[in-house]
Amino acid sequence: MNIVNILEEIEKVDGEIYERLSPRRNAMKDFYNIGKKISLAALPLAMGSMFQKAYGQTNPSTVNDVLGFALALEYLEWNYYNHALTLANATYIPDGAPRAAITTIRNHERAHVDLLKGALGITGADGYVYADFDFTASGGFADVDTNYQTFLKVALAFEDTGVRAYKGQAPILKGNAVLTTALQIHSVEARHASHLRQMVAANVTGASGLKPWIAYAANGNDTGIAAVNAVYDGEQNTTQAGIQITGINGTSVSQSQAAECFDEFLTGAAVKNIANLFIKAGKKLT
């Protein structure tokens, strides 16, 4: 029975254990030093509390907080697509398959809004309307209302962000029936993202190589659109739970395929920073 042995075992499967514990590195050292002296009876309690600090939510959030956060993102998406589809400019989103696809996506986002409002017991008007958003992102996407390419770029950023946002909130919903619903929304957003990536590849200048999945790029962003770097921050990761995926077990899994085959999550704070670029003052997410 050796406490140090146990910590080493954890390190093997979780190479970041000491980083997770880093804010309490000194406490960790103390723990290490006194580990041998702690009686077996007292040890479980001490260990349990230490690992709760390392892995647990430092920022307590309730299920309703998560649903409210998700709802705000769905408002953003729905208003974006709905506005574009109702613009007078007939050539903006071409008729046929493009308009049909955007309509499908728009309808799903509305269904998500209604579902989440229902789950939160909100019966009144929408909490966000079109006027609350600035889809040009303070001029970064100035022609979003007239240029189909720009429209697709922003749409893709929203969908890939949505996928990462739901993923990041999953731990708070762990073991809750709401988690299943959130996952069912999450994979629909991923289907949207996959299709939009193909629309971007087919229509956006210089993006013909864009894959339905997020390929490796040094900074995570495989879209070539620098303005959305934050959306893809960390997607270049090829190590999962301490296991290197590139060439795993002697296979020919490439670096890009290793990055592609696991989508990364974004923290709530990172998602809010991205969403707030498109939300006007006074209505920004906090």
């Binding site: 999953a170 029936a177 289907r191 739970a241 999550f265």
Partner: peptide, 24 residues
């Protein structure tokens, strides 16, 4: 909803969205 470990829940989430991209 059956997964008890936060880390494995997130890992499952990382995989399922890629499967959804394939499906689409």
């Amino acid at each position: 909803v059956r997964i008890k470990s936060t880390d494995y829940l997130v890992l499952a989430g990382k995989i399922v969205s890629v499967e959804a991209r394939h499906a689409a």
